[in-house]
Design a protein around this nucleic acid. Sequence first.
RNA 1: GGGUAGGUGGUCGAGUGGUUAAUGGCACCAGACUGUAAAUCUGGCCGUGAGAGCGUACGUUGGUUCGAAUCCAACCCUACCCA
Length: 306
Amino acid sequence: MKPKVIVIVGPTASGKTSLSIELAKQTNGEIISSDSMQIYKDMNIGSAKPTIEEMQGIKHYLIDEVLPTERFSVAEYKKRAEKAIEEILKKGKTPIIVGGTGLYVNSLIYGIEYEDINLDEKYREKLMKKAETQSGLEELYREAQKIDELAAQKISPNDKKRIIRILEIYHSTGKTKTMQELESRKNEVKYDYKIYCINMPRDILYERINKRVDIMIEQGLIEEVKSLLKKYPSFPTAMQAIGYKEIVQYLNGSWGRLEAIDKIKQESRRYAKRQITWFKRIENIKWIDGLDKMQNNINIILEELH
RNA sequence: GGGUAGGUGGUCGAGUGGUUAAUGGCACCAGACUGUAAAUCUGGCCGUGAGAGCGUACGUUGGUUCGAAUCCAACCCUACCCA
């Protein structure tokens, strides 16, 4: 029998953190984050990272793992997360995956294998530059079609990142994306994932998001961004984070303070919507009501654990 | 009180007699998603209908015209300037 692993997902501000910590306490569990931004050091307030007090002594993995100057990836995430799962299981404890990054969650629950390849940054830059013009992008798309007709068909001719990816994979492995994806799903999934998504009516969720952004500002998000900018020279991916990029706009004078704050709220709401769309597609996912009493939800999860 | 500019769909903003339910952007809704993913991309978006269509819409009322968001008149409102 495969070991059970609990997975808690849900849109931002749905209450994943508090539920998961309480759950960990009741199941002798430890938490593995599946959040693409909480993994970065020094990005605390804006990524809604749990504080030491909030953690209540529950061990958390994959939080504060990498510097904002580093480039992170799903492949790297998958590797580290599985290592953490093993470590927790070895202790006889329950692994609990918690986070809102659907891509990262999928890498685990579908057991996707990523081969070891290095990113050719120069090549990517070259492609990115070319993709800046409409004609350049069209040309890249045509190249992608030649290499991997099927993969190109599935994406839009405007989808820069995915067009580049098709070319990149071929460039560094000689394989097509389609081929690589087929190989990535060969192995059987090693764990028995029990997946739950916290949800609630959209309007209530949006209110919670708005309120949380205000709290982040009160807690000093602006200061946090300032010191980040001072401390690190570059941010290959970390500055994509909602709440950070907007404050940067404010600090460099492009936006007013209120404008930036409203933008953070709006982007967060839109993000939550995309997250929900993602989670709807996960088969075997169980939806739990974020407005219900926490203990009721925990009981639902506990029941399935035995 | 006088002058000027203007009032367009949830919002911003094009459109100045017919091919206009009305370009765009944004919001919103729905969707996609395998190495940057809090990223990137796609579709829908007045109502009704499966659809052709029908109904209702460009401040209000009335007029000109075969035909008006577009022209005219009066009125209401907004912004700025003068008093």
